[in-house]
Design a binder for these strands. Structure first.
Length: 496
RNA sequence: CGGGACGUAGCCUAGGGGCUAAGGCGUCUGCUUUGGGAGCAGAAGAUCGGAGGUUCAAAUCCUCUCGUCCCGACCA
């Protein structure tokens, strides 16, 4: 990375590679320079640094609140899972076996049965549900777990795909198929709402095709986001598991008619990958751009002074900071003497702080401050008494305009396409390093066959991202790939 | 796991068998500065990714290994 990057970085001061030069490198530069995460001594694993973790905490807290609102409780299950548990569900083990980390020794001795480190917790959770569920009165069982999981990925990328990551996994058990299906959709909607409202990332909710669904699920739903290079990123999934895990772990209950029946299940998850989505949706060549709801600080105050004005400006800035704190804002005062205002501007832009407040002698004289929006760079001259009100306004303005900008970008790059030639043309040829010149979301009719998916993937590297909800009725026409009668409207895209 | 590019101080690079491993950025100290990445002076910081080998002599050559990025394959 060092050398290729150096060639691209003409100016020494330039810490972040431009998106247009190398999108992948731009992303890495943002993560490292905004101090969100760092590479670790452990292959494929990263360290989430305090700033990255603070963002995760905000995301986590909002989801946690919403899960509890919808009746779920948190619990914690073991990290280590007996290998035999995975093997109980045939599709499940087949799907996860290649990426398992396995513990063979403990306490200096070889274990009788190896454990795997959880790649997901369906199996250990359902082994417990078996003991906890006897009657329809025990249902629904609505449990969520915040945890780390390990999947031995061949190729890792900061936040987007690491061997170990943090996530949340909901595991619910229900009396009826209908209830379980409702739960699946309820949580998908919670995901959509939080991701769009708080991350300001617009998403398309939809159903996965057979070849893309979760190993062990009957149906998988996801929310799909478009990054600035026009690739898709799966931002959350919700699975209807049918009775698959209940059968595998023999979890039966006595229903209202007194008959034994297998329990209906769902599972759903979002991970620290969302931070990757956040970065790639909003940020620019100056660095990170954070939506106000997720920024660790609401604003930064940068005092500008000479020696003779230092004391007065500092006092003015401190007073403003105290006032904002009293109004409920978290505002950082960057009083560091050693660096110049210009440095600080660039530094806080790199970190993604939504609003910068500049205070200099001229502002003091006219009893105002300069407020600068991170997302647009727009400068506003604001009377000092109005700062709390204006900050509040700016926050909601920035939040909504980030969402609007991302949505407009996605919509511009979402194109209906009717035939294979059109799809090939749309996805074009992906050139190394600068992917993103072509492509986007292609909306095309699809016959439902895995062969068509595979064939398109081979020709364009695009996969079926989802069958968008609410658009599957009245599908008429021909499959864009094979020409057979279409059964679905699908979104195809290259993805992360 | 295959192909490619790499690994020298916190970061970026120079040095490609020979004396004490060189420079820039950053860091630290002091002074001067401060409205878009400040200046001067001084200081600290490297067993050259690791192991083995060849050699009188290895950052440099050879073998192995670990790691990072890119492209594939793989990937709820």
């Amino acid at each position: 990375m060092a050398n290729s990057r150096d060639q691209r970085c003409v100016e020494m001061a330039e810490k972040i590679t431009a998106r247009g030069v190398d999108y992948s490198q731009w992303y890495i530069d943002i993560v490292l320079n905004a101090k969100l995460a760092d590479y670790s001594p452990v292959k494929g694993s990263m360290v989430i640094r305090p700033r990255g973790y603070a963002i995760w905490e905000k995301i986590r807290d909002e989801f946690d609140r919403r899960f509890k609102e919808t009746g779920h409780e948190n619990a914690y299950f073991p990290l280590l899972i007996p290998m035999s548990f995975l093997e109980k569900e045939a599709e499940h083990v087949e799907g996860f076996a290649p990426e398992l980390a396995v513990v063979t020794h403990g306490g200096g001795e070889k274990l009788e049965e190896p454990y795997c480190i959880r790649p997901t917790s369906e199996t250990i959770i359902w082994s417990m549900y078996r003991n906890w569920i006897q009657s329809w009165r025990d249902l629904p069982l609505l449990i969520n777990q915040w945890a780390n999981v390990v999947r031995w990925e061949k190729r890792t990328r900061l936040f987007l795909r690491t061997s170990e990551f943090l996530w949340q996994e909901g595991h619910t058990a229900h009396e009826t198929e209908k209830e379980a299906r409702e739960e699946t959709m309820r949580m998908l909607e919670v995901y959509r709402d939080v991701v769009e409202r708080h991350l300001a990332v617009p998403v398309v909710p939809g159903m996965k095709s057979e070849s893309e669904k979760f190993a062990g699920a009957v149906e998988t739903y996801s929310i799909e986001a478009m990054m600035q290079d026009k690739k898709a990123l799966q931002a959350g999934t919700s699975h209807f598991l049918g009775q698959n895990f209940a059968r595998a772990f023999d979890v039966q209950f006595q229903n209202r008619q007194g008959e034994l029946e297998y329990v209906w299940a769902t599972s759903w998850g979002v991970s620290t990958r969302l931070i990757g989505a956040l970065i790639m949706t909003h940020s620019d060549d100056k660095g990170l751009i954070l939506p106000p709801t997720l920024s660790p600080e609401d604003a930064v105050i940068i005092p500008i002074y000479r020696n003779d004005t230092k004391a007065a400006v500092t006092a003015y800035a401190e007073k403003l900071q105290a006032g904002l704190k009293a109004a409920g804002f978290k505002v950082v005062l960057d009083a560091d003497d050693a660096s110049s205002p210009g440095w600080k501007f660039a530094e806080w832009e790199m970190r993604g702080t939504p609003v910068r407040i500049e205070i200099g002698p001229r502002d003091m004289q006219s009893n105002q401050v300069v407020m600068v929006r991170r997302d647009t760079g727009e400068k506003l001259f604001v009377p000092v008494g109005e700062v709390p009100t204006r900050l509040k306004e700016l926050q909601s303005l920035i939040q909504s305009s980030l969402f609007a900008r991302a949505k407009a970008f996605r919509d511009e790059n979402t194109v209906p396409i009717t035939d294979l030639g059109g799809l090939i043309e749309f996805f074009g040829v992906e050139t190394a390093g600068t992917s993103g010149a072509k492509g986007g979301f292609a909306e095309a009719l699809w016959c439902g066959s895995a062969e068509c998916e595979a064939s398109l993937k081979e020709k364009t590297k695009a996969t079926l991202r989802c069958l968008p909800l609410g658009r599957q009725e009245h599908v008429e026409g021909k499959c864009a790939i094979c020409g057979a009668p279409a059964r679905h409207l699908a979104i195809f895209a290259r993805n992360y």
